[in-house]
């Protein structure tokens, strides 16, 4: 039994140090930044990473996109990362509480909810209150996940109670239920609606302003390339970052 455990331990050790070996080995300019970013940032951060690489010789940016709570769990369990961009402040707070963040997180973007329907909006939905109608098959996020928490906030502030057919655990599942025609309407983030293009029709509603989701970004305490990581954060906060994020539907955080 001891031999078996030793074997497993050995395998673990092999797997653990494979990732960042090349960042220190080569010349002084060769740096690999590992950025953990919320799944909703996949397209924008991929583009920002490419632009950052072309502006900084010898730097390559690698991403790990996943749900913010998954990313925090990975960072807490010792996953090597230089930068963390969360889709909500709650998950960034978890990292800050465990002293995993270098300095203070900065808010770099904000996202609000939007209604999506099938192209052409066959059910004639015009605003948030229309979603409560009985003949509408509505899909929203579960209150346990950020987009669902935002939905609940809007429900509470507007006094309109929704009766959804399903409470999904990911915003992409809500979108999929609408694009496949299973649901008449869904509540997703503006950026998801923009990303879906012509597959859906988007309807903005004023009550969405009651639940603005702020995205914080921070350099992680465990980063071996703190300066370069800070440069990437500044790049996201700078004009290029604002432009790319704005095109995807994000608004500036206040």
């Amino acid at each position: 039994m001891a031999a078996v455990l030793a074997l497993i331990g050995g395998l673990n050790a092999c797997g653990g140090d494979g990732d960042d070996g090349d960042s220190t080995a080569a010349g002084s300019e060769e740096v690999t930044l590992t950025v953990f970013a919320a799944a909703s940032l996949t397209s924008t951060f991929t583009e920002l990473g490419e632009r950052f690489e072309s502006e900084n010789e010898g730097v390559s940016v690698e991403f790990n996109f996943a749900g913010s709570s998954d990313l925090v769990a990975q960072i807490q369990n010792g996953s090597p990362a230089d930068v963390f961009a969360s889709a909500d402040e709650k998950n960034m707070q978890k990292a800050t509480d465990d002293d995993l963040v270098e300095g203070e997180p900065t808010l770099f973007a904000a996202n609000t909810l939007q209604i999506v329907t099938a192209p052409g909006n066959p059910k004639g939905i015009e605003g948030f209150e229309d979603l409560a109608a009985e003949d509408i098959t509505l899909v929203i996020c579960a209150p346990e996940v950020p987009c669902g928490a935002a939905t609940k906030e809007v429900e509470e502030s507007s006094g309109i109670t929704l009766s959804p057919a399903s409470e999904e655990s990911a915003v992409t599942d809500v979108l999929a239920k609408v694009t496949s025609g299973e649901a008449d309407a869904g509540l997703v983030y503006v950026t998801d609606a923009v990303g879906a293009g012509d597959a859906v029709e988007s309807i903005s509603f004023p009550e969405a302003a009651d639940a603005v989701n702020d995205y914080p970004i921070a350099v992680l305490a465990g980063s071996e390339h703190g300066d370069m990581a800070q440069r990437f954060v500044d790049f996201v906060l700078g004009p290029t970052g604002r432009e790319v994020l704005g095109e995807a539907g994000f608004v500036q955080s206040e």
Partner: peptide, 18 residues
């Protein structure tokens, strides 16, 4: 099937959400 308490949210889906 989707995910709604008591209707379609089975134990594995509940675990995933929790």
């Amino acid at each position: 099937a989707g995910s709604l308490q008591g209707v379609t949210r089975t134990l594995p889906l509940e675990i995933y959400l929790q």
